[in-house]
Structures are given as C-alpha cells and as structure tokens.
Design a protein around this nucleic acid. Structure first.
Lengths: 126, 126
DNA sequence: TGAATATATGAACAATCATTCATATATAAT
DNA sequence: ATTATATATGAATGATTGTTCATATATTCA
C-alpha cells in the first residue's frame, strides 16, 4: 500500500510504534467517525439546534427550517439511528427531542474551537 | 417549500417561534457542520488518533495507516484547513500535531456517547 | 548543477449522500 | 368504512467526497 520507503521508518520508529499500538480497532474508528459524520451536515445541525430545550414534532421542525416533511423525516431517521435524538409517539404525532446532554456539549465544544481558531466572536456565534 | 400545512402550526406556535428565534445564522451553522464533517471520516479519525501526544511527519502517518503519502497528504490538508492540526517544517520534513485540546475532548466525548448509547464497554473502546 | 527525498496538488473515477417525488403506513375523525 | 392527517420510506438524481495516478514544488546532498 505504501508507495515507497523513507528514512522516517528508522528515525521515528518509536513514535510510529506508539501510534500503531494505541490505535483503536477499525470498527471503533468506524463508530466514532460515523457519529461525527451525522453531526457534519447543516440540515442536521439545524435540527439539533431546534431541539435544544425543545420537543418538536416533524411538522414543527419542517416549518422552522422551511423544508419538506419528507426531507426532515429522512434526516430524523439518521439522527435516530445514531442515537442523537429520541422520540415519543402521541396519536398521529411523533415528538422528537435530544437524546442526552452529550450532543449539546459536543456542539458547544465545537463552537468554542471555531471561535478560538477562526476568530469569530462569541456574539456572532451565540 | 413546505408541502402542506398541519395543525401543529397553531398548536405548537410558541415552541416553533422559540426554535426560529434561537436559530444561529446560516453561515454559523455552516462552520459548525463543516467542522464535524471533517471529524466524520475514518481515515481522518485514525490520523487524529495517531497524533494524540505524538508529533509525526507525513511519512510516519502513512506507515502507521498503511496508506499512500498522497492520500495522507490530501487528508492532512483538510485537517489543516479546519484548524484541527498544526504543522512545523524542518528541512524537507513536515511534522504534524493536534492544534489544541478541543479535538481530543471532542473525540473522548463522542466515545462516551457511543459507550452509553450503543452499550459498547469501555475496554473495547480504549 | 543535478539527483534524490519529502510533501503537495490537480484531474479523474467510483462511492456516498441529501433532497425530491411518489407511495405506504398508522392513527384520528366523520 | 371512508377520509384526512402525520409520518415514514424506496427509488431516482444531482452533488459531494476519498483515493489513485501523474506531476509539481521544495529542500538536501553529492
């Protein structure tokens, strides 16, 4: 797989071994990256925002975002499958809310990172 | 954009207004989702893992991951552009490392979420 | 200067993804 | 039972993305 060898193989042997030894299994990597991938879409980030301290049905979310019920429903399925949201059925209506506090924590932490690195001030991002 | 109206518009008016008012601007949503999107790829998560408490050159990372230098270099460019990694040049060699502690914090928080929700135990994920 | 090494990048291609459209399911109301 | 409402889902499509291949840049060494 590696195209050609370089001197680093010998010079950095310890650091390379350290990285190899502490590398998680592939399916763990897959779980974690899949989780972030779900957070990595503007539509889903908007849905997550709408659900901060708010329980909304599909119809509500569609109106907040000015998108079709179908598009929202498809995205909610992905958020459900990643355990980012939970839902509660009441008659015909399905109410969605955030599954736990981690989602908001992750959102806030990413926001802090962007404020620090991109120089966007807190006011604009709040 | 919305396909048809539903009763929620009136019944949930307050909740809908709350979500609309607290919704960040579109470009803010874009920044945050773009950040998570960068974390949402197995190759990049592996690179991030390799760089935990470790400064490595492109060649090292390629060997750790058993991938071509070109593929790694492309991914490092994305990580650089998202300010996830920083780099330091020493002659021909470019050493990469994580830009700040947020990246590792986000990784750990996502791991905790997965452990809690997916029932994977801590041992497997560490 | 010229050859070798380390990294970066543009173009191409296959794979993945978000939305739309049509349709299906489930519940409520008449 | 029939109709209306709320949500879910399969297929199709245009857009985006990760890797490969070829090539370019930058630095070191002879």
């Amino acid at each position: 797989m590696v195209d050609y060898d370089c001197q680093c193989e010998e010079l950095h042997e310890n650091k390379i071994q350290k990285a190899i030894i502490s590398m998680p299994e592939d399916n763990i990597i897959k779980y974690i990256s899949a989780f972030f991938k779900i957070m990595g879409d503007p539509t889903r980030i908007k849905i997550i925002n709408a659900l901060f301290d708010n329980e909304l049905c599909v119809c509500d979310i569609a109106e907040v975002m000015n998108m079709t019920h179908s598009a929202i429903s498809h995205q909610l399925r992905l958020l459900r499958e990643a355990d980012l949201v939970k839902y509660r059925k009441e008659g015909k209506v399905v109410y969605y809310s955030l599954n736990d506090e981690h989602v908001e924590q992750l959102y806030e932490l990413a926001k802090i990172h962007i404020i620090e690195k991109r120089g966007l001030n807190a006011k604009i991002l709040s």
